[in-house]
Every structure is written in structure tokens, then in C-alpha cells.
């Protein structure tokens, strides 16, 4: 059946060309920007996540981001965190937990109508650093704090 074979080959070539185009970003996949960024939330080390999320953009250390976070957490499953900042034009706030299997916990896109204030509760697997990266006026800034966990957040 030469016809079927030809048709199959043609289809597979077309398909692989499409996947290649999608992978290289020529054809945008059918998702909007608001869709969940699965790639950022994939398991890996902190460095891998930072690489995937921010690529090679330089992240400056700053003391203009204030974290309210316990330095010793009795229960790693619920660790309250409050982030405030005196930086102007804040666009995004990223919360990363160094030793969690998926380091990125949350990304908040803030509109200009909200103040530089985000509060939530995190799971922290073990004693490690919590890193907050803020994107303000297209620059990236970070600050971090160590949290000692006595009971991990990943157990049952």
C-alpha cells in the first residue's frame, strides 16, 4: 500500500515540523499569558528553577524587600510569610523555597492599583532559605531568609 505509506510519512514530517516550530517558539502554543506556567513549576533544584524562570537576567540583592517570616517554623506545612517592599513599579513577586522538590511556590502579578504587599502561607520541606524575587521596573531584585523547620511540610 504505497499510498498509505506516503501519506503516513507526509503526516509525520508535517507533525515533527510543527513540534519543532512550537518548541522553538515560532508557533505560539495555544495558551494565554495568564495560563499556568508549568515549566516554572517543574521539579528541580533552586538553580535550575532560577535558570528556567529568569534565564540569565541578573538578580540584584536588595534590602528594600522586607520579609516577615519566622526564623524557626514548628510546622513546615504552614509557614506564614508577608512580603512588603519600598521598591517602585513592582510588577511581579516570586516566592521560592530552596529545598522544596518544586522550588517555586507562587508568582503574583501585581497591578499598579495594589501596594507592594503580599501575604500567604507556604509549605517548607526542610530547613533552608526562602527567596523572594521582585520584578520592579523590569529589574529583578531578591532577598532571602533562612527558616529552620522542625517538622517538615512534605510528610503526610
Amino acid at each position: 500500500m504505497p499510498d498509505t505509506r506516503r501519506a503516513f510519512l507526509k503526516a509525520s514530517v508535517a507533525l515533527s515540523a510543527y513540534s519543532l516550530a512550537t518548541a522553538t517558539g515560532l508557533v505560539a502554543p495555544a495558551t494565554t499569558e495568564a495560563d499556568w506556567i508549568a515549566d516554572f513549576f517543574s521539579p528541580g533544584t533552586l538553580d535550575e528553577t532560577i535558570q528556567k524562570t529568569f534565564h540569565t537576567t541578573k538578580i540584584y540583592n536588595t534590602d528594600k524587600i522586607e520579609l516577615k517570616l519566622p526564623s524557626i517554623a514548628e510546622n513546615g506545612a504552614v509557614v506564614p510569610i508577608t512580603i512588603t517592599s519600598t521598591l517602585d513599579l513592582i510588577e511581579q513577586v516570586f516566592i521560592l523555597v530552596e529545598k522544596n522538590p518544586i522550588p517555586l511556590a507562587a508568582v503574583f502579578d501585581l497591578s499598579p492599583d495594589v501596594e507592594a504587599f503580599v501575604s500567604t502561607r507556604l509549605k517548607i520541606a526542610e530547613t533552608c532559605n526562602v527567596i523572594v524575587v521582585v520584578k520592579a521596573a523590569t529589574q529583578l531584585y531578591k532577598t532571602q531568609q533562612a527558616v529552620k523547620v522542625t517538622i517538615g511540610g512534605c510528610g503526610g
Partner: peptide
């Protein structure tokens, strides 16, 4: 916001 399972 985009949230992962790292939130309590």
C-alpha cells in the same frame, strides 16, 4: 497569580 503546590 500562578500558584504551585508549595502553598499550604
Amino acid at each position: 497569580s500562578n500558584i504551585g503546590a508549595g502553598v499550604s
